[in-house]
Structures are given as C-alpha cells and as structure tokens.
Design a protein around this nucleic acid. Structure first.
Lengths: 339, 339
DNA sequence: AGGATTTATGTTATCGATAACATAGACCTG
DNA sequence: CAGGTCTATGTTATCGATAACATAAATCCT
C-alpha cells in the first residue's frame, strides 16, 4: 500500500543499493547498470515511492520552478502564453508557478516577492509597469528575467513581445488609409504605464502624423474593459461626437461591444462607422461583421519565452535578447472599404 | 547590496539574536518582544534578506502549496476559479500550483503525479474523468482532495460544484416549456465521462421525459468547442434536420457560433429557432440577441473551495463535503417566447 | 516572599535528497 | 602485466530553516 511516507532510503534498502544509486536511477542521469535501474524502478513501483521534490530541490539548490506573472488569468492571451510556457517547460522538468496581479502594481510587487521566496530559476513577467521596489527586486534577483507582451523602454533583461505602440499606430493608420478622418478611441481609465496606454499613444501618433484631431476619446472603466463596457463607451462616444466615422478600440471585447452599440443605434458597420479592435480574440473572427484587429500570438510568446529560458539556464545564451513576435493588423469586415 | 545569498543566520548575527528568533519574528508567530522584532525587520530590510521557502517548507514539512488542475486555462470559468482560489488562499500564505491538462486523461495523470511530488497540502481538480491510476494517486495521497465543477457519482472526497446533468436537463426543459419540440443538440466529440457528457445526458433525459425525439445531435469536434465550430455544427445540423425549432448547445461559444450560422442562413433567433448555451460567458450577455444560458459561478467555486481547504487544513472539518454552487438557467432573448 | 507561571529567547536535532568526493573492480594499452 | 582509464556504485557532508525542547528573566499569586 503506497503509504506516503516511503522515502528514498526505503527504496534503497529494498533494492539492496545505496540511496544515491536510487537517486541516479530516477534521474536518468549518471551511468547506472540497466539491471540495477530496472530493479530499482520495480521497487519504486511496488512500494509506491514518490520522490519528495521539496527535499530534492532544497538539496540540489534548484527549485525546478519558473515563475510567471500575468495581469489576469481570465484573458485568452495570457492563458495561451501560460499554456505555451507550461508545454515548453514541462518537457524539461520545469514547473510553472503562475500568479495573477489583477493589473495592480501593488499586487504585482507582492507577488514578485512571494514568488522569489520560492527560488524560481527564472521569472517571466507581463510588462504592465511596476513599482520601483518591484523592479529592484527583479533586477537583484540574480535569475533570468523575461518581460513579455511589450518591449519596455528600459527592459530589465530579456524581452519576448512586440511594441504595442507600433501596433496601435499601424492599426490606426489602416483606418486612415481606408479614408476615415474622424476617428474615435475607446480605451481604459488610469492606464498609465500599461500596454493599453502604449497602444493609445500609437493611436495619437498616427493621428498627429496625418494631421487629424485625436480628441474623440473615451476611457470610462479600469482595465480590463469588457464587451458591455465597450458598448457603453460607444454609446457615450456617439453622443459626444456625432460625426465619428471610425473607432479604434484598445481590445476586441471593447470593439465587439462597440459594434453592438452601433447596430442598436442603427448605424452600419463598416459603412457608417469602421471599428477596429486589438488582440484577435475568438469573437472577432466569429461575429458579424468580423472584426479587424491586431493579431497577437500568445502561444508563441509563451513557447519562445520557454525556449529562451531553457537556453539561459543551460548558459548557452548570455546577451540581452529581444525576441520580436509579430503583431500586425488583420483586416476583416468591420473596416472593409466596401461592404 | 542585496546579494541573494543572505541567509537567516546572517540576519541573526547582524541583529544580535539567534536564527530561531529571526524565524519567529518573520512569522508573526511566537511571542517576540516588539523591540526585538523591529530591530530584526530593520536588519532584514537593510541586508535585503529574502527567506528561502525551499528550505522553510522542507524543514517544516509544509509546502504551502495547493495544487489546482483545470482542463484549460483558456476558459474564463477556470480562470475565474483559479483567481478566486488564489485570492482566498494567498490571504493564508498558501500558494497556487496551477496546471492545465488539455482535457487529456493521460496528461491529467502525469500532472497529478508531478504535482504530488511537490507535496501540496491539498489538491483541487476539475472533474473530467480520470484514469484508474490517477484516481488511485489522489486517493492515496493523504491530502484533502476537492473535485470541482461537477459532482461525480463516486466522488473521491469533497466536492464544490453542481450537477451538470441536472443543469443540462433544466435548460432543455426550458426549451420544451416555451413550446419547442424538434430540439437539436450541439456537443463535443469523444466526451465520455466529461462534464459536457453529463449535460448531454441531461438533455436526453429531459427529451425522453417529454416524449420527444432526441436524435438531432451533432458532435464534430473534440473539446473544447469554439465559436467557429459552433457555427459549422449549426450549418450541418440545419442541413441534416431542416425542421429544427430549437438547439441546446454544450457551451456559450458554440451557441454564439450557432446563432451567427442561423443569421447567415436567414433564420430568425429566437422566432424560427431558439438557441440556448451553457456557462454564461461574457459574449452571451453582450451579443445580439443575448443568449439564454446556464449561469455558473467560477469565482464562487474557487472561493468556496479555498475556504473549504482552509477549514480542512485547520482540522475544523472532517466529513466529506458537497458544497453546491447553484447553476440555473437564465432566460435571455435567444429563447424568448415572443420577440 | 517564595514558589508557580508566563514571556522571550537560545540550543540542538532534523527534514530527504543530492553534490562532491571516494573506491573497487573491469577493461585497456603498449 | 603494470599502470592508466573507465564504469558502477558507495560515503559523507550539506542545503537553510524550523520543531521541539530548554532556560533565564520577569511577573504573578496567595
């Protein structure tokens, strides 16, 4: 009966070898005679032995953990990233320590400290701005730090992501290219330092470059903005600026909400108003009309961050890396020139 | 400079106390003279000491981990559950060890074994059927096991969830109640033993009880079914069974896709075809028409599982618990009797 | 006031696996 | 065949914090 208190020495005794030999046999590590290994594995199975990684990690001073911090789990992009990471890392015996920060700098700081106590071998963090103390903790942690989903101006070390600024600008440019001039923006309140803010700055820059008036903006809710919020924002936007002929949204859910608002108000999308989103959420591919958006690749970000970590831990790679994951506009029906 | 190799004895030396006193001061645990604690905390801050939980957990034989297994992170319900759990547990100094299984029994088994090596203090697992070996590992783990999101016939120990069977039946009954008779079902392929299957059985039972023909079913894709899949399924369904006047879907994304299919084919929802989903996803509240669905409460499942764990770890509670989280139909536009 | 209790802190042993070093025998090699 | 090399395994020390027990000083009680 697999009592949970079987330990390595028990296995060793039962197999007639030393504990060290058992340890090696289980790690496919040292050179073990095949016969010995088979016998040990049989005993392991029979006794129901389960190695204690608490002890193992402590002894080897290698936790086998990689910490990942995302603003929210309830966001398909971060979920994909986490999944991509888990898949990449579990193949190497590394385990994910996943935490969410609710878009709060304070909670981010707290989570970072908590996570570092577990001595992760690397730290992956979704850039969304942090406190001085949080940044300091990361810098002095002595482990590889990878920022993802945005290339910060002053990256701590490695980055796997893209420029939200450039992507926001490109999407806005697309709206200008299809002939729209009175373009609104639906964003989030209190977004300073976040990725959403970077997108909005991209919007501003594209508008300025085209000599257009960028003041048609709404930012009513704190991140993350949802579909219903997007609808409400659109209603407000159309009340305040009746002449709008296009809207750039900080994310697809907001854009979807905006489209439903336009439809309820009898405006045709895209003929009367073109609407663009960000993130290529499932809904933007499935709804009517389909939503033009910036396609991002959460799984790839996770996978690339995963392989980067593995390289870094092997020491194969030292220099600061910036791995760019393309994030480009995808034109769909909601911004089609002709219907 | 906060080198990462400061250890407790260093702090002790610098503060002129023993390591044990430092340990107690950091844990708000034993009775420490306020003066002593303040001095210790000051030294901790100054040296940049960060406790090593690897060592601490090993020594105390309490990992401080709670393992959580979900089929997918990329599902708002599980994300909410994980978030609710993290919030409930982090207040007690417990940390989440989160893993996803991709709806695969094999991977579930592997994840369970990996997680148990970390000696979690409790294990939370989304019921979706498991292998014999996996179940055995859970049973003999010696820690509290909580199954969530479904009440299995043979629960291992505690359950926080609801009957997917009953909920599926109730939703189907609603369709019958509004006068529909030729009701189709859109589900997932190879769903045996899963929560989706339980919903489908609820559908079958409601149909049988009403003396209706339940054979109008489509199950083309493996879980999880998406919006586009739902659209495709609806197209197929309408080709095969032209007389359909309602469709019950295994989840909201499928229902949303089905609605778009109906709209593209010129059918009015709900007048021509009523469509019901499951899960109360964001989209079902925001789309046009809004989707009737079964409202579930992921956050609450997480929060209740969290408090249950805390009770169990305190030993306040021993008996097998079944905590029911209501999952009831919410009628919206997609199944309104009149438009 | 003297024993009983409480409070604050120190000492020692220990958690279970693994790194680092050690060793006996088998196998070369010129 | 003597000395070198490799292979498979064993021995010993150790990772850093904490539980359990011990103790000195302060406080209480009748």
């Amino acid at each position: 009966m697999s009592g949970s208190k079987v330990k390595m020495t028990d296995v060793a005794k039962a197999a007639g070898v030393s504990a060290m030999t058992v340890s090696r046999a289980l790690k496919h590590d040292g050179r073990i005679a095949p016969v010995t290994r088979r016998k040990i594995l049989a005993v392991v199975e029979q006794l129901g032995y389960r190695p204690d990684r608490l002890a193992g990690s402590f002894s080897s001073q290698r936790s086998g953990f990689v910490s990942v911090l995302v603003p929210s789990l309830n966001n398909p992009h971060f979920a994909e990233t986490a999944a991509g990471l888990q898949d990449a890392l579990s193949a190497k015996g590394l385990q994910l320590l996943l935490g969410h920060t609710n878009y709060s700098p304070t909670q981010t700081e707290l989570m970072i400290e908590t996570m570092l106590e577990r001595r992760p071998e690397a730290m992956i963090i979704t850039y969304d701005g942090y406190t001085k103390r949080a940044r300091q903790a990361l810098v002095s942690s002595g482990i590889p730090v990878i920022e993802i989903w945005e290339r910060p101006r002053d990256a701590i070390a490695h980055v796997v992501g893209f420029s939200n600024h450039a992507a926001g600008k490109a999407m806005t440019q697309h709206l200008i290219d299809i002939g729209r001039r009175r373009i609104g923006y639906i964003g989030e309140r209190g977004d300073s330092g976040t990725r959403g803010a970077a997108r909005r700055k991209g919007f501003l820059q594209a508008m300025a470059a085209a000599g257009l008036d960028p003041h048609r903006q709404i930012a009513q809710v704190a991140p993350p903005i949802g579909m219903i919020d997007g609808r409400a924002a659109m209603v407000t936007l159309l009340e305040q600026f009746k002449d709008i002929d296009a809207v750039m949204c900080v994310s697809d859910p907001a854009a979807f909400g905006a489209i439903t608002a336009a439809q309820l108000l009898g405006r045709n999308v895209p003929d009367d108003i073109a609407i663009a989103g960000f993130g290529d959420f499932e809904v933007s591919r499935a709804c009517l009309p389909t939503i033009s958006t910036v396609a991002v690749h959460g799984t790839e970000i996770g996978a690339r961050a995963g392989t980067l970590i593995i390289d870094l831990l092997h020491g194969d790679q030292k220099a600061k890396q910036f791995i760019e994951i393309a994030a480009v506009p995808v034109v769909r029906e909601s911004t089609s020139r002709t219907r």
